[in-house]
Amino acid sequence: MPRVFGKEEFKMIPEFDFHVHTHYSDGLSEPVEMVEAATARGLRGIAITDHGPELSVGISPTKIEQMMNDVEIVNGDADIPVLLGIEANIIGLNGEIDIDEEILNRLDVVVGGLHNLASSAQIPKALAKDYLNTVMNTMKLQKIDILAHPFWFHEDLSKYLSQEDMEDFAKLAVRTGIAIELNTKYHSPSREVLTTCLREGVKLSLGTDAHTPSEVGDLTWQMSMIKKIGAKKEDLVLEEFL
């Protein structure tokens, strides 16, 4: 039976961190160290989501099986669920990603992240439009569960987009069942994006983008933003992946 939160308890206790990196990509620690940190912070679950291989700091294709086996072993020994995931890189304007379907089908959670945008646009508004179209093409095409740090590409690109753009994005997220991440590292997306997503019924996901054990589960910004936009427990992705 799902746990029932009291009003104050929900304000104070973040329960899951669905975006964590280890030494398999650009993190600094073993998966077991990140899980130990999550347990010590009182989380009820964590997802290991190292970068896919197309990013310069991503996991080597030859290490993917090793990473998956490592996470499986850690999960078997841990006191909390440890989800096997990846932060797949969006690598083309048409929505391609760098993880093949055979691997995707073996994962508990797939985070989609856009780090290199295949665009020649120089004007911020045009760049923002290319970002939006790329992300929406990915959402239509790929089996991803969470969109990482939405609209962050060296800066917050959402400020260059219209309200209609944001509504189209949010409606697509609802149709595809993709959650939108509240990201600790970049404090993204903006309050305006989150308010639109919440109004349209988009699920929200909590992720630190942690690269060290000390960063795991530090969801202070997310909990503050949740309060500001009036999100409730049912608006969040919490136990859906367990």
Rank of each mutant, 00 (worst) to 15 (best):
M1Y: 12
M1F: 13
G6E: 12
G6A: 01
M12W: 06
D17I: 08
D17V: 05
D17W: 00
Y24F: 15
Y24D: 01
L28P: 03
L28H: 14
S29A: 15
E30D: 15
V35T: 05
E36M: 13
A37C: 11
T39L: 09
R41K: 15
L43G: 02
L43C: 03
R44M: 12
I46V: 14
I46K: 05
I48N: 11
D50A: 04
D50F: 07
D50E: 04
T62F: 12
K63N: 14
K63L: 15
I64E: 04
Q66E: 15
N69R: 15
D70E: 15
V71D: 03
E72V: 00
I73H: 04
I73E: 14
N75I: 04
G76I: 04
A78M: 02
A78T: 01
D79V: 12
I80V: 12
L83V: 07
G85L: 05
I86H: 03
E87R: 07
A88S: 08
A88W: 08
N89E: 13
I91S: 13
G92C: 01
N94C: 09
E102Q: 12
I103G: 10
I103M: 08
I103H: 04
D108L: 10
V109R: 00
G112Q: 01
L114G: 04
N116W: 13
S119M: 06
A121D: 09
A121V: 10
Q122H: 12
A126L: 15
A128T: 03
K129N: 09
D130L: 11
Y131K: 07
L132A: 00
V135G: 06
V135A: 07
M136N: 05
K140M: 12
L141Q: 12
Q142S: 01
K143Q: 07
I144C: 03
D145A: 04
A148T: 09
W152Q: 09
W152E: 02
H154P: 00
D156S: 06
K159F: 08
Q163P: 10
D165F: 09
D165A: 02
D165T: 02
D165P: 07
M166D: 01
M166Y: 03
D168E: 13
A173W: 05
V174R: 05
V174H: 06
T176D: 06
I178W: 08
I180Y: 09
L182W: 01
T184I: 00
K185Y: 10
H187Y: 14
R191Q: 14
E192G: 08
E192C: 00
L194I: 05
C197I: 02
C197R: 01
R199F: 11
E200I: 15
E200L: 07
E200Y: 10
V202F: 00
K203E: 07
D209S: 03
D209K: 04
P213V: 13
P213S: 11
V216Q: 01
V216L: 06
D218E: 14
Q222S: 14
M223S: 09
K228S: 11
K232N: 02
K232P: 09
D235H: 12
L236F: 00
V237E: 01
E239F: 13
E240I: 05
L242Y: 12
